[in-house]
Design a binder for these strands. Sequence first.
DNA 1: AATAATTTTTTACGCGCGGAAAGTTTTGAG
DNA 2: CTCAAAACTTTCCGCGCGTAAAAAATTATT
Lengths: 343, 343
Amino acid sequence: MEYTKIRNMEEFASVSGLSRPTVSKYFHDPSSVRATTRARIEAALEEHDYRPNIFAMNQNRKLTKNVGILVPYLADPFFAEIARNIEQRCIDAGYSPTLYSSHGDPNLEREILENLRALKPAGALIAPLGRVSDNGAVASFCEDVPTVLFDSNLPDVGLAFIGSDNPQFSMLMVEYLSRTGEPPCFFEMKDPANPNANKRRQGYLDAMAQLGFEPTIVKVDGQGWSFEEIGRAGGIQTLEAGGFSTNTVLCSNDRLAIGLLTACYEKGLRVGRDADCELRVAGQDDHPFSRYTCPPLTTIAQDYDAMSRRAVKTLFDVVESGERSRPHETVLYEGRLIMRQSA
Amino acid sequence: MEYTKIRNMEEFASVSGLSRPTVSKYFHDPSSVRATTRARIEAALEEHDYRPNIFAMNQNRKLTKNVGILVPYLADPFFAEIARNIEQRCIDAGYSPTLYSSHGDPNLEREILENLRALKPAGALIAPLGRVSDNGAVASFCEDVPTVLFDSNLPDVGLAFIGSDNPQFSMLMVEYLSRTGEPPCFFEMKDPANPNANKRRQGYLDAMAQLGFEPTIVKVDGQGWSFEEIGRAGGIQTLEAGGFSTNTVLCSNDRLAIGLLTACYEKGLRVGRDADCELRVAGQDDHPFSRYTCPPLTTIAQDYDAMSRRAVKTLFDVVESGERSRPHETVLYEGRLIMRQSA
DNA sequence: AATAATTTTTTACGCGCGGAAAGTTTTGAG
DNA sequence: CTCAAAACTTTCCGCGCGTAAAAAATTATT
């Protein structure tokens, strides 16, 4: 195969019988050279498998092909899934995405943004931690780097925010639950880090008001990203303190619901919509595991395929058009009711 | 703050009243310059907040501070967790880790390794896909880049393999299960991609033989990384075909077990170790979600704290000592029995 | 205070590639 | 076959920094 080790583009150009600038053009855009030239380069590529030095490429280029992707917590399968989705779309668009996770830590989030700057990315797609984020740091980053926010919004920061219509989520579920049984009470964390939680609560309140029911909100203690544990501990506590005010509970998100299901199991409470069940539990997000809980969780699915597509498209539209400033855009996707056995 | 925008190290050196090589030395190792010099640089740093250009730094340096981390499937919380652990340790050691996921795809795995090469990493920590990996590609990568393998082994590839003593896992669980009830049958995928699955099966067979019981292996169809779904579908099928040969099932891993629990729920089979339960189900891995299944899953915990610590230490020992070749090392950690309600 | 040891400066080159300008060859339309 | 457009080659310079060698300056030692 490779008789001679190719050390740089100069050498590679010589073995392929071309000049370096032409080869350079090829790597920048294969369609920018004549078909016969392209064929010669690609033939040489098979023989010697050379790759341009990334660092040398990027240092002297105004805009790199780097893209930063930042999620608040990668150990959450929901974010792992959406990150994967976005990552793939970036690759398909010819960019080099790099994935980062804040691991729930605002300091780490700030540090990652700082390091990201050094990579001179063409753009970034970030889901901020939310309420605990260093808003100044995020906003400052967004001024220097074209950035699309997703999942969790910071008002007027970045090019755009792509997310879910959280109030609609709760409305949809409240409507379904109260149509098929008792109206739900709402189960959430006392101090949710994610701003979506507030919108979901408000959606619940609005829906209940609209349907003429009295809302009840159960707030449980807990901090951090161990939502399942918070839901379980809070569930136990609530059940021991006399239980919920109705036989139906709408959780702020699936992970809390998963914890609540565990609590119900521990307390011997049968969950589901069958006649012999004592409680209905619903979640929101369509977390990857929600289909495998016992009983499987009724929930609202986020359309993360559409969201990731839109987020990536918005970013690259701006990056590739070179626009300096465009009006901040907000796009919200509706959720879809996923009926399973838990409610 | 910054009256003058610093464009490069030359300018920064001049505003701090020093020469560029001295400043360069500082960024390479702050302790390599005199304390008074260090103070001047750091004072200037506060004023102008300059950062050396990463690409320029790396292009002309034999070894970068980059470290590649590759896991087979980041949407699996187990890998997300261990990746986070490893990532943090790399940062603490002063390196810049970059996280990648093969997403279960051997082609993507090969491509990532190729891209990783271009980053001239000082080292890499990778968990190969396993049986479906392009072994040649992985081995070739390991020859060029100091690499420690974890989770899933490829014989004699890389500097070392750090993993779990999988046969011991099964032995431990078989011993526990047969001591407290009927000996288990073994539930697994027909064609497991992960080589650990084979070791766990063998551990099961050995343990059963040692204890004088007749082993039974239930193999279920399914491919890919949707283990929960494979476990659920296989579970339904097995239960409809007459059920398991004993009232105790040891699953090859927690995710299969989670799916099996769902199948049992669908079939109305009560799982647990109480008198009124019809089946005991155990897993292996201590998956983050296993504590929240209904019933909570009895399983074997991998010591991923110890594994990640050892993997990172092994890598950096080699990288920093500059050793060319050292004997391949294999380190296996024992599992710990986590008793919950499912078995 | 003189000498040795350490640190810093000066100078210079190289890394691998981007990109511009001007000249040369190839291509394709008529 | 002619000629202009397109593609390619040649030649340069620059990016920001690493790094080496030698000279100069600073500190430490006796």
